[in-house]
């Protein structure tokens, strides 16, 4: 079954201010959708609504044609969400962190594969170092190693480029387009232009107006 995440007539109010109203979003297999807008325009909130974390909104979100929250469990089984916080435990090593994530998602995998994923994000030799000793960018890279391991179809990434260097940005852009080419879908917020991602779709949140292209 082809991946399909849709939202219709979404409206979300925070502190007496509409973040967005009447917003329609559709994300299908093979697409990369970038949510953009100024700080505080509700990008993170929209991402959380679309992956079922926030439910008190108007409008409906449908996963594979079925409305949330009923379809929430199925959505979560296909979701890889990277939030603002790296989600890395400081007193565990990089490989222990990844091992937990893999077990949590139900895709247990051998250590050799975890090491390969860490090497791919430029952390070869740091496998057994407690992540507290890594730099902010390296911690972010441990998080990004999950993308290499994950077999989830839907990636929802909130500012994944934070603290990443130029080479890392290029590699991540390549990974996003590769994932889309393999039939996955990516929903991402970032201030990077993502110029190396072919067929990039944009959704601009700007106060009351939403511009989709």
């Amino acid at each position: 079954m082809r991946l399909c995440l849709e939202a219709r007539q979404l409206a979300c109010e925070r502190d007496g201010r509409w973040l967005f109203r009447g917003l329609d979003v559709a994300l299908k297999a093979g697409e990369v959708l970038r949510v953009e807008g100024p700080n505080g325009s509700g990008k993170t909130t929209l991402l959380k609504i679309l992956c079922g974390q926030i439910a008190d909104v108007d409008g409906e979100v449908r996963w594979q044609g079925r409305a949330l929250p009923r379809a929430r469990a199925d959505l979560l089984a296909n979701l890889l969400y990277l939030g603002h916080a790296p989600g890395i435990k400081a007193n565990l090593t990089a490989i222990e962190n990844l091992r937990w994530y893999q077990a949590l998602s139900g895709d247990g995998c051998p250590d050799a594969q975890l090491e390969a994923a860490l090497a791919e994000v430029g952390l070869a030799g740091f496998e057994d170092v407690p992540t507290a000793q890594l730099s902010a960018g390296q911690k972010r890279r441990v998080t990004l190693a999950r993308l290499a391991l994950s077999r989830r179809a839907l990636w929802v990434l909130d500012e994944p480029f934070t603290a990443i260097d130029v080479a890392g940005v290029a590699a991540l852009e390549h990974r996003l387009s590769d994932h889309a080419a393999r039939g996955g879908a990516v929903l991402v917020t970032t201030h990077h232009p993502l110029s190396n991602v072919p067929g990039l779709r944009r959704l601009t949140l700007d106060g009351h107006r939403q511009v989709a292209s």
Binding site: A29, Q64, N78, G106
Partner: peptide, 22 residues
């Protein structure tokens, strides 16, 4: 495609054990 759309509810035991060990 590499990523099949999956059903929920696989690998619960493994997730609980991994969280306990972590």
């Amino acid at each position: 495609a590499a990523e099949p759309v999956r059903e929920a509810g696989e690998g619960l035991g493994r997730a609980v054990v991994a969280t306990f060990r972590r």
